[in-house]
């Protein structure tokens, strides 16, 4: 069973969301997701300034095994992307919930966070996979 931090929110498509305050959230993919994908070799990130809507495919995590779409878990504007992933995509494998973060979104509506899964809800969703 992989690590699922209780302070984060989750989408069933395996993104995690951390509320940073000020209406900004950090987004990454879960440890479970990186484990399924295997060694990461490229991560294609959105551009800062992009307006994204919940469910849009906004990034691609490409591992040795497969290319996988990453979806925006909330609606808002991309305000920062993790440029370290350009040279070190393996950070997604080694520290999925930390240095392997993907991008930050300024939320249009903070209430949307309530629609995401909590740790237990995500744990249940991957049990059903």
């Amino acid at each position: 069973m992989s690590n699922i931090p209780s302070e984060l929110k989750y989408a069933s498509s395996h993104e995690w969301v951390r509320n940073e305050g000020n209406g900004i959230v950090t987004v990454g993919i879960t440890e479970h997701a990186q484990d399924l994908l295997g060694d990461m070799v490229f991560v294609e990130l959105p551009d800062v300034g992009d307006e994204v809507s919940t469910g849009d495919d906004v990034a691609v995590a490409e591992s040795v095994k497969a290319a996988s779409d990453i979806y925006a878990p909330v609606t808002g504007e991309i305000v920062e992307v993790n440029e370290d992933l350009e040279d070190s995509p393996e950070l997604v494998n080694s520290d999925a919930f930390g240095d392997g973060w993907l991008f930050k979104i300024k939320l249009d509506d903070e209430a949307e966070l309530a629609d995401l899964l909590d740790a237990d809800g995500y744990a249940n969703s991957i049990d059903e996979d």
Binding site: G38, D39, V41, V64, E90, N93
Partner: peptide, 8 residues
């Protein structure tokens, strides 16, 4: 075995 941690 597909890998023992890291294929690369």
């Amino acid at each position: 075995p597909i890998n023992y941690g890291s294929q690369i």
